[in-house]
């Protein structure tokens, strides 16, 4: 790590702003998750929440200059989608595996 040049000032500034914006996005999604008012609304909030989490992990990867969290981001994207599909299907069919 030490032999590589440090990430510059501009990039660090952009990363700080990026973290701030995405964190606010996470909070807004959580707010929608809390106030509902309907089940589909909450599923939509969860769906947005996991996409926001992927964004946070990508930012963290750039910040730490390692692709350590890439697999985590990929897995969250995969399981988040499966979760959304299962929940939405449960609402329409009353069952997930038919």
């Amino acid at each position: 790590m030490n032999e590589l040049p440090e990430t510059g000032l501009i990039l660090n500034l952009a990363l700080a702003v990026g973290f701030l914006l995405v964190t606010v996005a996470v909070l807004l999604s959580l707010w929608r998750l809390l106030i509902g008012p309907d089940q589909p609304d909450r599923i939509l909030a969860l769906d947005t929440l996991y996409v926001n989490t992927v964004a946070l992990l990508v930012l963290l990867d750039i910040k730490l200059a390692s692709s350590l969290y890439f697999e985590a981001a990929l897995l969250i994207a995969l399981f988040g989608f499966v979760g959304t599909v299962a929940l939405a299907k449960f609402l329409t069919r009353g069952d997930i595996i038919e």
């Binding site: 040049p5 990430t7 510059g8 501009i10 990039l11 500034l13 952009a14 990363l15 702003v17 990026g18 973290f19 701030l20 914006l21 995405v22 606010v24 996005a25 996470v26 807004l28 999604s29 707010w31 929608r32 939509l44 909030a45 947005t48 996409v51 926001n52 964004a55 930012l59 750039i62």
Partner: peptide, 27 residues
């Protein structure tokens, strides 16, 4: 180096901005 840095920084700002916009619309 400077050009790449500015390019990446711009993409980060655009990306984070749209992510926030998506959740803002949600509320």
């Amino acid at each position: 180096t400077l050009l790449v840095e500015i390019f990446v920084a711009l993409l980060i700002l655009i990306g984070a901005g749209f992510t926030l916009l998506g959740s803002f619309g949600l509320v």
